[in-house]
């Protein structure tokens, strides 16, 4: 297993943000983390990336427990945050070189990796442009290139299409799927947008801090007796609202 999350719970004071979340992902899998705003997706990401201290449960990445082996786990993790975290006044190359150094890459090795990832993203000709000069889609591509510089085995993307137009959203989604297929990268793609998910995708449906389903999009439709994923999503989240 690439990621194993067991009995993960988290509270902000008295308010429970995650309740006994339990799932595992296989290597090379594209998995959507679907949930409305406030469902607990970003909290889950903050725990997976060690930004928040764990309160209950465990997170294991490639057989390494995050709490016991934080260094090794972080080496295998690439992250694209919801809000852009690039330095707008620095060039693409400078932004990537900074990240490379944080992961212990420097000099020729860093330059080679940066060139490789930019080429893969079709962004080689923008290496020396300031990030400020790039459009939203290109900035996202740079952030993905950055997240992959240290060759992680797992890529976490927290609502990466926020602020992008439909065309750029589609292109980015397609690109990450291709990356997943080509490199055996495990991808966890958090979103609240149904159109970013294919029926055959593995979907973790999260709502009010609870994992409602962890099968494929098809399974979700079957579970709710609906034909379309959007209807299934609405039905399942509404049911939880009623129960609450």
């Amino acid at each position: 297993m690439s990621i194993e999350v067991r009995q993960l719970s988290f509270r902000y004071g008295k308010k429970a943000a995650l309740k006994d979340v339990d799932f595992s992902l296989e290597s090379g899998q594209f998995c959507a983390l679907l949930g409305p705003n406030g469902a607990g997706k970003s909290t889950l990401f903050a725990l997976l990336t060690r930004l928040y201290a764990m309160q209950n449960g465990s997170i294991v990445l490639n057989d390494l427990d995050l709490q016991k082996h934080p260094t090794q786990v972080m080496q295998q993790l690439g992250v694209v945050f919801q809000q852009s975290t690039l330095d707008l006044d620095l060039s693409v190359q400078q932004n990537l070189a900074y990240h490379a150094s944080l992961h212990g890459l420097c000099g020729t090795q860093a330059r080679l990796r940066i060139a490789e990832e930019l080429q893969r993203m079709d962004m080689s000709n923008r290496a020396h442009d300031k990030v400020r000069a790039l459009n939203g889609g290109h900035r996202r591509r740079v952030e993905i290139a950055r997240a992959l510089l240290h060759q992680p085995s797992v890529l976490l993307l927290d609502e990466p299409t926020t602020g992008l137009d439909p065309k750029a959203r589609k292109a980015l989604n397609h690109y990450v799927r291709q990356l997943c297929a080509d490199t055996q990268l495990t991808v966890l793609w958090a979103t609240h947008l149904i159109d970013e998910i294919l029926p055959e995708d593995r979907v973790l449906l999260i709502h009010q801090g609870q994992l409602l389903s962890s099968g494929t999009g098809h399974d979700l439709c079957e579970l709710s007796n609906k034909q379309h994923l959007a209807d299934a999503f609405e039905y399942l989240t509404q049911q939880t609202d009623t129960a609450a």
């Binding site: 990336t49 930004l51 090794q72 945050f81 975290t85 330095d87 944080l102």
Partner: peptide
């Protein structure tokens, strides 16, 4: 805060 997140993604302590 955004750049702190990037910083804290480093595997170093």
């Amino acid at each position: 805060m955004g750049s702190m997140r990037v910083l804290l993604m480093s595997p170093l302590p």
